[in-house]
């Protein structure tokens, strides 16, 4: 792993010698969320967005996993940064956080991770973090690093709009989309407040609960999406509890612009830690099937 990181360092170094705009040139220019959703929509599809934790089970394998997700047809990526107390996540994601933490992941290495995946993909990358990681690094510094490493959007799971003022200002300053959660329990008044701050996409939580695979999608998803659509033109993506192609098809059919799947993919990682080759193929295969389900 160390040798790999050293190599990355050299590549960035070489890019820097070429003068102005060097950082951007060493990476692929990324698509914005707006461009991606537009593109997907023009094909009559919904967006498929897989979620994994950066560095799970270690930095290098995790990069290869992301590569497989891209090959499998992911339209955008949600990347989690490890945190010790992930209250919005179920046991599957927390276990991924712990594996990444034990493998030495930090917020800084998370940004290195994004820089590295920017060498092979231009699809939008969103971060899913907890606010203490932002606060500890310094709000301004965090969003600056995010922008420089090629991040398109940041969702802090424990940052509701009433606390998000400073973060939104910093995000906008550096051209990062501040992404927010909205749930069934979110009133219309709150929804207005949220969509005013939110850009990129609105992360819609269709179940009451934490992240984690469930056997069926709640029936009121259609209603929920219609209500949210009444308040905003920002693309809507449904996440939490979406694990199977049928769920993806269902939420896209219900009018969502995209579907986010995390725990089901992380389980593939968890269950195949001893067979990396199989794990990567299974990840790609699962991702293709989930993507296929967005083609309505």
């Amino acid at each position: 792993m160390k040798a790999q990181e050293a190599k990355t360092g050299t590549q960035i170094g070489e890019g820097q010698k070429t003068g102005e705009g060097k950082r951007a040139r060493s990476r692929i220019k990324s698509k914005s969320y707006a461009e991606m959703f537009e593109e997907v929509k023009s094909k009559g599809e919904g967006a498929f967005i897989p979620f994994v934790v950066a560095g799970d089970p270690n930095f290098e394998t995790s990069i290869q996993i992301v590569k497989k997700l891209v090959e499998g047809g992911a339209d955008a990526l949600e990347i989690g940064f490890t945190f010790s107390d992930p209250v919005a996540d179920g046991p599957t994601v927390q276990s991924a956080d712990i594996r990444a933490f034990k493998a030495g992941m930090t917020t800084k290495k998370g940004f290195e991770f994004v820089k590295k995946l920017r060498k092979f993909t231009n699809i939008p990358v969103g971060l899913l973090v907890y606010y203490n990681l932002i606060y500890k690094m310094g709000i301004e510094e965090f969003y600056k690093n995010a922008a420089e490493s090629g991040v398109n959007g940041v969702l802090a799971a424990d940052l509701p709009p009433e606390e998000a003022g400073d973060a939104v200002v910093a995000a906008k300053k550096y051209g990062v989309d501040p992404i927010f959660l909205a749930a069934q329990t979110t009133s219309n008044d709150r929804l207005k407040q949220i969509v005013d701050m939110c850009s990129g996409f609105l992360y819609v939580v269709s179940v009451m609960g934490v992240t984690g695979a469930r056997s069926e999608v709640k029936t009121s998803t259609v209603e929920l999406i219609e209500r949210m659509r009444g308040h905003t033109d920002t693309p809507l993506c449904v996440g939490f509890g979406i694990s199977k192609p049928e769920h993806v098809a269902e939420v896209i059919k219900a009018g969502s612009d995209g579907a986010i799947v995390g725990s089901a993919l992380i389980r593939v990682i968890e269950e195949n830690l001893n067979d990396l080759a199989f794990m990567k193929e299974k990840i790609k295969d699962s991702c293709s099937k989930l993507k296929e389900a967005t083609r309505r």
Binding site: V87, A88, Y131, A157, D158, L159, P160, E163, F180, L181, A182, A183, T185, T186, S187, R190, I194, V205, M208, G209
Partner: peptide, 8 residues
């Protein structure tokens, strides 16, 4: 500082 789901 909690997820949106708890706010209500």
């Amino acid at each position: 500082f909690v997820p949106e789901l708890i706010i209500p």
